[in-house]
Design a protein around this nucleic acid. Structure first.
Length: 303
DNA sequence: CGTTCCTCCTGCTAGC
DNA sequence: TGCTAGCAGGAGGAAC
């Protein structure tokens, strides 16, 4: 499942293979992939045709291409991969994938594949156009984003790897949250980019159970959780960023996933890498959570 | 506003 | 063998 590191690998691939090129033809296959583009798929395709790709940007799990038509201001083609979305760069005559939802032909460069494709099995992902606005989360005294951010995703908080991220501010907001720390980590309005896998990894590193009430943790403990989240995603990016094929903007998440060294997620019954106790799996928020019964004791009262 | 719950979707696996 | 149920889960919106 693509979380911040996987999406960043995709963004880097787009920066290498798509930025600077012009969309000569756009095709949206089916309405669902463009459901968040309110004017509809025909409008989306029409507005992309002839646009130049200026940049590839990301905040948390959201990705966007800065695109600019010949007579218009730059705008954002926002892409969310959902659970199974992939962006690939391929030859236009490559066989259509089973769950192909959009194609974007890119202007001629005979040495490079020249069709960007959006493929998504579970169709939680999608594409839409948005105006670019100044980043409301820009921290004073830090470099602002050159192109701004899409206006429709200003509710998404900065992620731990970007300049606008302010860990102290997130700690202060966590101190006011009367909910489980894991639930809070997954709230993209508080800190973005963390999904179920990296939430479990961060909590394992910080030795905190996910059902501990956020507000009940000390500020230093909250800081350790957030630092662990930043570090584990940074480590995953370093490990996954090296192995993608030039023909694929993303390896699809799979090869990065298998090579990743996880300490908690999916390790039910396997020994804790710190203390040796078998890890447990708990069902929580209708999804699985993995933790060490010794290093991450459950809170006495729920939450 | 904060918080919780539900829903969207397909493919794979476990169990009968 | 073939069926069903359960599971995976990001994010938005409804409901309280």
């Amino acid at each position: 499942m693509p979380e911040l590191p996987e999406v960043e690998v995709v963004r880097r691939g787009l920066a290498d293979h798509v930025v600077g090129r012009t969309v000569t033809r756009a095709a949206i296959l089916g309405a669902r992939v463009a459901r968040r583009h309110l004017p509809g798929p025909v409008d989306l395709a029409a507005r992309l045709t002839g646009a130049v790709v200026r940049a590839a940007e990301r905040r948390g799990k959201y990705l966007w291409l800065v695109v600019q038509g010949p007579d218009s201001d730059p705008e954002a083609l926002v892409v969310h991969l959902g659970m199974s979305g992939q962006l690939r760069v391929e030859a236009p005559d490559a066989p259509a994938e089973k769950h192909l939802h959009a194609t974007f032909d890119l202007d001629g460069d005979e040495r490079r594949p020249n069709q960007l494709r959006f493929v998504d099995q579970r169709t939680f992902g999608g594409l839409f156009l948005a105006d670019l606005v100044p980043d409301p989360a820009a921290a004073t005294g830090r470099p602002a984003r050159e192109w701004g951010v899409p206006g429709t995703i200003t509710h998404i908080a900065p992620d731990p790897l970007e300049a606008a991220y302010d860990q102290g501010a997130v700690v202060r907001r966590l101190k006011a949250r009367h909910t489980g720390i894991k639930r809070a980590l997954l709230d993209q309005g508080l800190v973005s980019g963390i999904g179920n896998i990296y939430a479990d990894e961060a909590l394992w590193r910080a030795q905190v159970h996910g059902e501990r009430e956020a507000a009940s943790l000390t500020k230093p403990a909250l800081g350790r959780v957030l630092s662990a989240a930043r570090d584990v995603m940074s480590d995953a990016l370093a490990a996954g960023g090296t192995s993608f094929d030039a023909l694929y903007v993303d390896v699809n998440g799979q090869s990065g996933w298998f090579e990743r060294s996880l300490d908690a997620y999916g390790r039910e019954g396997q020994p804790c890498h710190r203390c040796g106790r078998p890890l447990r799996r708990e069902s929580f928020m209708n999804r699985s959570s993995f933790s060490c019964p010794r290093c991450q004791p459950r809170p006495r009262r729920r939450r």
